[in-house]
Amino acid sequence: MSGIALSRLAQERKAWRKDHPFGFVAVPTKNPDGTMNLMNWECAIPGKKGTPWEGGLFKLRMLFKDDYPSSPPKCKFEPPLFHPNVYPSGTVCLSILEEDKDWRPAITIKQILLGIQELLNEPNIQDPAQAEAYTIYCQNRVEYEKRVRAQAKKFAPS
């Protein structure tokens, strides 16, 4: 494992614990031996107030490669969400998460999670990743928002 990646992720964890947006979660997972795995984080993004996503808490896994922060983490909703920019596998399609697009090593975990929260309610229809959600979003916004509200209710924190 890269010392650069681990040191950056340790800084990220410290900064997150000191200050993070209300309702968001970002925690490194534990290895079988109980030690912390900084390369694999369990996160959760709350649906934004005043949107059909409100009330939901959407679980996301963030996986970092050894060359982080040169390369972005892979962000994957578990379980996958109904959304035009979420692949059926759950992987998020967002330009700041793509090395050859808008990724920059200075982007923080907090910025990534806030960017994904923004994307939930403002899909990028130029870059669809899920045919069904994309089609319904474009053709029947009322039905799309109904499905999103049902999903938010399903993923409401207990």
Score class of each variant (00 low, 15 high):
110 K>P: 09
33 D>E: 07
55 G>T: 05
152 A>C: 04
24 F>S: 01
57 L>S: 09
4 I>G: 07
111 Q>L: 13
66 D>N: 10
25 V>F: 11
76 K>N: 15
139 Q>C: 10
99 E>P: 12
95 S>K: 04
142 V>Y: 13
21 P>R: 00
157 P>N: 10
154 K>G: 03
55 G>R: 07
63 L>Q: 14
48 K>C: 06
151 Q>G: 06
118 E>Y: 11
25 V>G: 06
103 W>A: 01
64 F>W: 06
84 P>I: 14
144 Y>R: 02
82 F>H: 07
29 T>W: 03
79 P>D: 14
154 K>C: 00
147 R>M: 12
109 I>P: 04
120 L>I: 07
27 V>P: 08
139 Q>E: 13
47 G>T: 06
31 N>V: 06
64 F>H: 03
54 E>K: 08
70 S>D: 06
149 R>I: 13
145 E>F: 09
34 G>R: 09
155 F>W: 01
43 C>S: 10
114 L>S: 12
132 E>A: 10
100 D>M: 15
71 S>H: 14
18 K>N: 03
65 K>F: 08
82 F>C: 04
63 L>C: 06
24 F>H: 05
38 L>Y: 13
90 G>Q: 04
124 N>W: 09
37 N>P: 03
110 K>W: 04
13 R>L: 05
57 L>R: 11
85 N>R: 04
28 P>D: 06
27 V>N: 08
63 L>H: 12
51 T>S: 13
158 S>I: 12
128 P>Y: 02
121 N>D: 14
138 C>F: 08
71 S>V: 05
106 A>K: 00
131 A>L: 11
14 K>G: 03
121 N>L: 06
51 T>W: 02
133 A>P: 11
142 V>I: 13
106 A>E: 05
25 V>D: 10
11 Q>F: 07
63 L>G: 13
37 N>W: 09
81 L>V: 12
53 W>R: 04
45 I>Q: 03
57 L>W: 08
38 L>D: 01
116 I>R: 05
140 N>L: 02
39 M>V: 13
6 L>S: 07
79 P>R: 15
12 E>W: 05
42 E>D: 12
12 E>Q: 09
76 K>M: 13
118 E>I: 10
155 F>T: 05
54 E>N: 04
43 C>E: 08
2 S>F: 14
2 S>K: 05
30 K>T: 07
61 R>I: 09
65 K>R: 15
116 I>G: 05
117 Q>R: 11
74 K>N: 15
67 D>L: 07
135 T>I: 11
15 A>G: 10
29 T>K: 13
126 Q>V: 14
28 P>F: 06
123 P>L: 01
128 P>R: 11
120 L>W: 06
130 Q>N: 13
60 L>Q: 05
86 V>S: 10
74 K>M: 15
88 P>Y: 07
119 L>K: 02
152 A>R: 01
154 K>R: 13
62 M>Q: 04
32 P>F: 06
93 C>R: 02
118 E>G: 10
37 N>F: 13
14 K>V: 09
94 L>D: 07
152 A>Q: 05
22 F>P: 03
107 I>D: 11
19 D>E: 14
149 R>V: 09
112 I>F: 15
101 K>E: 12
61 R>W: 08
12 E>R: 03
73 P>C: 10
23 G>P: 04
91 T>E: 14
154 K>H: 09
46 P>T: 06
41 W>E: 08
152 A>Y: 00
47 G>P: 01
62 M>L: 08
125 I>Y: 02
53 W>H: 02
78 E>N: 14
7 S>G: 08
80 P>E: 11
5 A>G: 14
90 G>N: 02
135 T>R: 12
91 T>D: 06
4 I>F: 08
90 G>S: 03
78 E>V: 15
135 T>C: 15
13 R>P: 02
35 T>D: 02
14 K>T: 07
44 A>C: 04
113 L>K: 03
117 Q>A: 14
144 Y>D: 09
69 P>I: 01
130 Q>K: 04
27 V>R: 14
62 M>N: 02
80 P>Y: 14
53 W>F: 06
86 V>T: 00
51 T>G: 07
7 S>R: 08
12 E>A: 01
30 K>G: 09
46 P>C: 10
23 G>Y: 09
51 T>L: 01
105 P>N: 01
88 P>W: 06
83 H>W: 03
152 A>N: 09
115 G>F: 01
47 G>L: 01
149 R>A: 06
60 L>E: 03
113 L>S: 10
10 A>S: 10
6 L>F: 10
59 K>F: 13
5 A>D: 05
135 T>V: 14
21 P>Q: 00
55 G>M: 12
4 I>E: 12
99 E>V: 11
142 V>P: 14
157 P>Q: 13
116 I>W: 03
114 L>M: 13
72 P>H: 05
18 K>R: 14
137 Y>C: 04
39 M>E: 14
83 H>P: 02
56 G>S: 02
59 K>H: 14
158 S>R: 11
154 K>Y: 09
70 S>Y: 12
149 R>M: 09
127 D>V: 00
